[in-house]
């Protein structure tokens, strides 16, 4: 186990560097193709040359290599790595930092991410809980009785959910459930506000910091819920026919133990790793869901950076998200080794 962890940690460093370089290269080429992104911030107005120059230099966009199409800008990459090492992810064009860890403790050092993160963490926890509990449970039930009605309904409904892009699902739910149905609820005197305006509110509301995140959380978790249910179903279904399950039966164990211990323990290995990987999906999902329901989280800030033409913020947030994703991947791999002894002793 120890050797596996060491090996995996050693692999982690080049993966991080490689991924950060890839991100750097692709965005750099983007800037080289588009031209100075600062200009676009001013729209039709023509800024004074010195303002433009000052901004450009402050945002590290004055490097001449940014004018040479295809140049990988290794110098810039090195600078960026040093910045990342110091937890500096850049600023927006008003010089507000993308990230400042002191912002978690001190309002004076507030930054884009520290302000937004609590909302995103809350909505992600809601989504993840729903995904893990509901997805695993229905997948398990369906997988244990293949060919029965529950199995078919899980199969069909998960395909449906997977085929509906998250943003379509989001806007449909927002329109028909939180707006139309919510309006109906809000017309009923006897329904408490926390339900009618909180849970079924069509956007995030500060007065209902938890209730108004439930439906956005469900929308965020829906896609992974479907994939988790499907994966659990297949995995349980396959393991039910495994030789060692037959052995467990031949050992005269009760049905409950054959299923509960021998089948499930094995079936849940891929499911657990998939739950870990769904964090990557949540990052993009949060951008969509938070935008639709107007939750002031990290995803909303990402979308805002796109619409306001703030590539520096976009790149900064993405870099941080990618780092989180890589760490999550690492943890999933370690979890995998804990769950599956065959990996551990390789």
């Amino acid at each position: 186990m120890g050797r596996y962890i060491v090996r995996r940690l050693l692999q982690f460093i080049p993966t991080v560097l490689g991924t950060l370089f890839l991100l750097h290269y692709l965005t750099t080429v983007g800037i080289q193709l588009t031209g100075n992104p600062i200009r676009a911030l001013f729209g039709d107005k023509r800024p004074a040359p010195e303002t433009l120059a000052a901004l450009t230099s402050r945002l590290h966009l004055d490097d001449p290599c940014l004018k040479q199409k295809g140049n990988p800008c290794l110098g810039l990459f090195r600078e960026r790595l040093v910045d990342i090492g110091q937890l500096d992810f850049g600023t927006n064009f008003r010089f507000r930092p993308v990230f400042d860890w002191r912002g978690f403790f001190d309002r004076a050092h507030a930054s884009i991410i520290t302000d937004a993160l609590p909302y995103t963490i809350k909505i992600t926890i809601i989504a993840f809980t729903i995904e893990a509990l509901v997805g695993v449970f229905i997948g398990m039930r369906a997988g244990m009785k293949p060919g029965k009605s529950l199995d078919y309904s899980v199969k069909i409904s998960t395909v449906m959910v997977i085929s509906v892009p998250v943003f379509v699902l989001g806007i449909l739910i927002q329109q028909f459930i939180t707006r139309d149905f919510g309006n109906f609820l809000r017309g009923q005197e006897w329904i408490p506000e926390v339900i009618s305006r909180g849970v079924f509110g069509s956007a995030y509301k500060q007065e209902f910091p938890f209730a108004s995140l439930i439906i956005p959380g469900i929308v965020l978790g829906m896609l992974s819920l479907a994939t988790t249910a499907r994966l659990t179903r297949t995995s349980v279904h396959e393991n039910m026919r495994a030789d060692y399950v037959r052995t467990a039966k031949a050992k005269g164990l009760t049905h409950k133990r054959v299923i509960g211990v021998h089948t499930l323990r094995n079936s849940l290995i891929p499911v657990a790793t998939n739950l870990g990987l769904s964090i990557g999906g949540y990052m993009t999902g949060a951008i969509i869901t938070e935008t639709i329901f107007n939750v002031p989280g990290v995803g909303n800030q990402t979308a805002r950076a796109i619409f306001q033409g703030e590539p520096a913020v976009l790149i900064g947030i993405t870099t941080m998200l990618v780092l989180v994703y890589l760490v999550a991947n690492l943890l999933v791999d370690l979890l995998y080794a804990v769950l599956d002894p065959r990996i551990r002793y390789e």
Binding site: D243, A248, A250
Partner: peptide
């Protein structure tokens, strides 16, 4: 009954399977 049959397994009649690698549970 199923329960009576379950208790016959391993106690009275036991079985050895062909491929022990797949017949033993890999995670225990």
């Amino acid at each position: 009954t199923d329960e009576e049959r379950r208790l016959v397994r391993a106690n009275k009649i036991a079985m050895i399977f062909q491929d022990a690698l797949s017949a033993l549970n890999p995670v225990f």
